[in-house]
């Protein structure tokens, strides 16, 4: 179970989350997204980058609400919805975007 990029093998778990989050790079994010069937746009990267910033500070992905709020502050009111995030990441913004951002999967009753 691994992603391959530039001849390097990066391991992931059964669900595609990186085993070692330190191995993430932006090109790898692109590879994961392709596997997820997503074509990354600047809007996608905006979310992924925010997740990584938040994770760096708090060791957890932000709540959906925190994410929408941050996007709204940065990018404008049209991004202030759950629906916008689900349009970007159809499998659920928290889980799918975390996977692409190389972060662990949020667990629990979510």
């Amino acid at each position: 179970m691994a992603y391959e990029i530039d001849g390097k093998v990066i391991e992931h778990d059964e669900e595609g989350y990186l085993t070692d989050i330190a191995q993430w790079s932006e090109p790898l994010g692109g590879v994961i997204a392709t596997k997820e069937g997503l074509a990354m746009t600047p809007e996608h990267w905006e979310v992924v980058n925010f997740l990584r910033e938040y994770y760096a500070e708090y060791q957890i992905a932000p709540a959906i609400r925190v994410l929408t709020k941050a996007l709204t502050k940065r990018m404008g009111a049209e991004k202030a919805s759950n629906k916008y995030l689900y349009d970007l990441f159809p499998y659920g913004p928290a889980k799918q975007a975390c996977k692409i951002a190389g972060l662990p999967k949020p667990t629990g009753c979510v």
């Binding site: 709540a63 759950n82 629990g108 009753c109 979510v110």
Partner: peptide, 11 residues
């Protein structure tokens, strides 16, 4: 539940 801190519509 910690989902109340994280997920919608739990929050």
């Amino acid at each position: 539940p910690s989902a109340d801190f994280f997920a919608e519509p739990h929050v």
